[in-house]
Design a protein around this nucleic acid. Structure first.
Ligand SMILES: [Mn+2]
Ligand SMILES: [Mn+2]
Ligand SMILES: [Zn+2]
Ligand SMILES: [Zn+2]
Lengths: 146, 146
DNA sequence: TTTAATTTTGTAATGATTACAAATATAAAA
DNA sequence: TTTTATATTTGTAATCATTACAAAATTAAA
């Protein structure tokens, strides 16, 4: 991992939480760790299922609460691909997303949505920008042809 | 209305439906008319409430069905601003959207999301692109300062 | 007409998220 | 340490937009 690429370089997950003024409970640390290492942009259900084996008492509600808390302090990005389920991204760097309409996989795109938001009407204040692309991933595109 | 700006120029709403192979029932024509003239990117509930006075027997389910049908034949664009409610746009020209986080109003942006989707991974097929901007509209930004 | 197909309608089911309160864990005070 | 207050987790119930479904109404075909 490059030093410059990670704004939390050299901090433990627990420290990251403390620096945000959040008590680093076992559940929160595990959820943060999972989010920061996952590349699949998991849903609450995916986080829950992944952590359940190591934390049998984990509640879905805790995952919902935690992910909401992380959103508020800016530890995760919430993505809505219009499937009725939200996905969470621990990668806060400016980038965009592609969702395969066939297999549902989500890929990162090296496109900075911020830079796009030029032509805004006078007097508008931009807080967030999201760029979503939908289509077929290379694998599903291949299979399509058969 | 300029000739070039409307792909359905000179067609009645009924004809537009027929050309899509859809039977132009009273409900469908009214819903299409409403969608094509509205600039507010209405939700199903908004469409339903707007048409109820003139069609007291209208069912919410019909609006849901119709809007789904229109989506499938490409008569509307579905927008998801992550508020748990979908919004519908009869304007099919390439453009983006701004939602005010304070008052919930949706504004059109003169930004073509298609053109952004350059750097796609090899072999990916793009079907749809959406660009969403969130923030404060000029009115709400003013009020904010008081 | 009569019959068949389509569309609309109302109600029930679904499912992700949120609300809530009891149980548990942690920190602060004594 | 023990007691007490505060924060967090947990399980269950409520919410609410959307979807499923079947009966009623409308329209087209025979
Ligand atoms: Mn990402
Ligand atoms: Mn629009
Ligand atoms: Zn795929
Ligand atoms: Zn506003």
């Amino acid at each position: 991992m490059e030093e410059g690429s990670n704004p939390f370089f050299m901090q433990t997950h627990s420290e990251i939480l403390q620096n945000k003024g959040i008590r680093p409970s076992v559940q929160r640390v595990r959820i943060l760790k999972f989010l920061m290492h996952s590349k699949e942009h998991p849903t609450v259900e995916m986080i829950f299922n992944a952590l359940l084996p190591e934390m049998p008492s984990l509640s879905r509600t805790t995952v919902y609460n935690t992910v909401e808390l992380f959103k508020e302090v800016g530890l995760v990005q919430v993505l809505d691909f219009g499937r009725g389920v939200l996905r969470y991204d621990g990668d806060l760097s400016p980038h965009s997303h592609f969702e395969c309409e066939k297999c549902g996989a989500v890929y990162d795109l090296d496109i900075k949505p911020q830079e796009i938001s030029k032509k805004m009407p006078r007097g508008f204040k931009v807080h967030q920008t999201y760029f979503y692309v939908f289509g077929l991933c290379s694998q599903c595109k291949k299979n399509e042809k058969n």
